[in-house]
Design a protein around this nucleic acid. Sequence first.
DNA 1: CGTTTGCTTGATACGTATCAAAGTTGGTGG
DNA 2: CCACCAACTTTGATACGTATCAAGCAAACG
Lengths: 247, 247
Amino acid sequence: MKKTAPNRSSSRLEKMKREMMKAVRTTPLFHSLSDEEWRDVVQYLHGHTYPEDAYLFFQGDPPDALYIIWKGRVKLVRHTSQGRDVVVTVLGPGQLIGEMAIFDGRPYSMSAIALEDTAVVTISRHDLMAIIQRHPAVSFHVILELNRRLRLCTELVRSLAVDRVEQRIARALLRLMDLGGTPAPEGEGIMIDIHLTRQDIAEMTGTTVETAIRVMSRFRKEGLIRNYKGRTILLDPERLEKIARGK
Amino acid sequence: MKKTAPNRSSSRLEKMKREMMKAVRTTPLFHSLSDEEWRDVVQYLHGHTYPEDAYLFFQGDPPDALYIIWKGRVKLVRHTSQGRDVVVTVLGPGQLIGEMAIFDGRPYSMSAIALEDTAVVTISRHDLMAIIQRHPAVSFHVILELNRRLRLCTELVRSLAVDRVEQRIARALLRLMDLGGTPAPEGEGIMIDIHLTRQDIAEMTGTTVETAIRVMSRFRKEGLIRNYKGRTILLDPERLEKIARGK
DNA sequence: CGTTTGCTTGATACGTATCAAAGTTGGTGG
DNA sequence: CCACCAACTTTGATACGTATCAAGCAAACG
């Protein structure tokens, strides 16, 4: 596996960059900054793009930068010594990657992999530290974001500890719907517009491919979900919600 | 179960309070403050004590304050709708409780229960918000603390997803040793000086009492641990370490 | 003391992992 | 356009870990 070099096509680069910055400006982390503060911050931002399946960074790398997703979706994967991986979360536009490693300076505890063509804005570790000292509003939103993540993580712990696979998968599908849901292109239901293999689902829910498949087949037979060109369509979110909460 | 009222015995209260404040001053959250800054902060701090088994707050309560442990140990328990609980973590002196709820304003996502007689310092939600705005050094340490917690939580997720009960219990014992370990009073080994039932261990590792007991009995028969007046003594931490990492 | 609370052990059932093999899909190059 | 390959999906048989249920025991407690 090779780290894919950021792809900087030079034509129209400036225009794209301005557009990107404008989008980042509206991100929770920065939206409460005054114009003046923003002018201070913006000089430290850099844009990068990655193709599908590219690694933004590897577990174990020293932390170099904070990533803010602009376009695309990214999964965070924790590799284990015995080969089995855990997909800790899937993130989308506006969300942060790499904060953990940035703040405590320890190596990235997971790898970040683009699930589709992805564009990000980065801030180097050094610059971010400086920005935080100067702008309490940014600190504050960092706190809120870490907090949100901690809450989600705690919920995941509970789910792994007490729920059965069926419930965990239902839960995962609903979370993915929130993140990447669009109305299904034909018929009713909501499509999860993210390229995910059954392996990914299994790794998100702490189970094996085979079990994930068996559970999803059962869901399909019961009319809860449908497959469409490699994507999953949720036909009955209410019912899934019930299953997620243990019937 | 009733929320136990803070116990304010009035004699020597002032002396104890000063002592408490001095201890809190050295806590990661505040130790980098200048004397002047500290003088600003200290006026917002309040002391409380709780007897063993008392609830500091309940899951679902609206968040009123941040707690900083001064003395004693506290477990954070997530109650589930089907009666099974999950002990998310055990915290000791210097550590924070309730940050999550404080920052996003949503109800406490777990209950905090004193494992022994415990003294804490609290800051009301409102005051903490003000302090954070005024003192970037405090913000920064809040970020570091949230970050540490997130890392631990992520590790717990991995462990629940891929490790077997035996490994999870070994891991839990080692973590508890770091938190509440003292040299064993007789013979060698390190004693976990915290009152924990097998039920607690089970809830920390996402299993049932019976299974927790079976695993720990096996550990005992293999000379890895020993029981001493309701406490657990680790006789062979190296071996436990190996088991935690999957032999 | 009896009663509660926590600990322990055994028998059994169930969920899920594991191993094996075959079917399906999408992409690639001839 | 088709054949082929690799990656992914699916199904089945079996084994294993852990939950569940039941019961007895010990220590702490009012």
